[in-house]
């Protein structure tokens, strides 16, 4: 961890011993543990497929994600403005007998698991970093704004479609639901249409 120049063998230069040693200027630096390579997307995909199948076998339902966000928002709105939430047809779908408890919502607990699993996988592979993933073409700040805006659009889109890539794409895809396949195709169209506008963001 020191910045002291040493020989390859670790002996500090500048001492009597070093005059006999080779003139190497190897500096010992802190070696950040290298991030392990990602797994094959096919293998990881099959892994997810098995998890999805397990969900069907155990629960009779598939996986999801956006629904968890709805539960949280509905619970928050109902806590802040109960009558407003109760009167709103969208929020009231998520509230049964008064304020919904997100911690009893299947999807919310699944998402908690996703966080744990993602952290575990990244932790063991040396891929945990407090950073912002972005291309060199934009700043951190710009990237975060993009992420927020993108997230807002996805929030609206997912609620319109009643699902997202997990709930419709994976679950609906596997159960051959027509609307889910339509959603995925539309999502890819929307993404490919938008991507050229953001090329610089990722370069």
């Amino acid at each position: 961890m020191s910045d002291v120049a040493t020989t390859a063998a670790g002996q500090p230069l500048g001492t009597a011993a070093s005059s006999r040693a080779e003139v190497t200027t190897t500096t010992r630096v802190r070696v950040r543990r290298e991030a392990a390579p990602y797994a094959s997307p096919y293998v990881a995909g099959v892994g997810i497929g098995v998890v999805l199948l397990l969900a069907f076998v155990l629960m009779g339902r598939g996986l999801g994600a956006s629904g968890a966000f709805s539960s949280v928002v509905a619970a928050a709105v109902s806590t802040a403005a109960p009558s407003h939430a109760a009167g709103n047809e969208f929020y009231s779908r998520y509230l049964s007998d008064g304020a919904a408890n997100p911690l009893r919502d299947w999807l919310v607990l699944e998402i908690i698991g996703v966080v744990i699993g993602g952290l575990a996988s990244a932790g063991l592979a040396g891929r945990v970093r407090w950073t912002t993933e972005r291309g060199a073409g934009i700043t951190d700040r710009r990237r975060l704004v993009n992420a927020f805006v993108g997230g807002t659009a996805m929030g609206v889109g997912a609620k319109l479609a009643r699902g997202c890539t997990s709930g419709l794409g994976l679950t609906g895809g596997a159960t051959l639901s027509v609307g889910s396949w339509l959603f995925v195709i539309a999502a890819f169209v929307g993404a490919y249409a938008t991507a050229p506008l953001l090329r610089r963001a990722w370069r």
């Binding site: 392990a36 390579p37 990602y38 797994a39 094959s40 997307p41 096919y42 293998v43 099959v46 891929r127």
Partner: peptide, 15 residues
Amino acid sequence: TVDARRRPGIERALA
């Protein structure tokens, strides 16, 4: 971007 490992043997078997 970190590279991804390829596993041609397993992938072929899955296919």
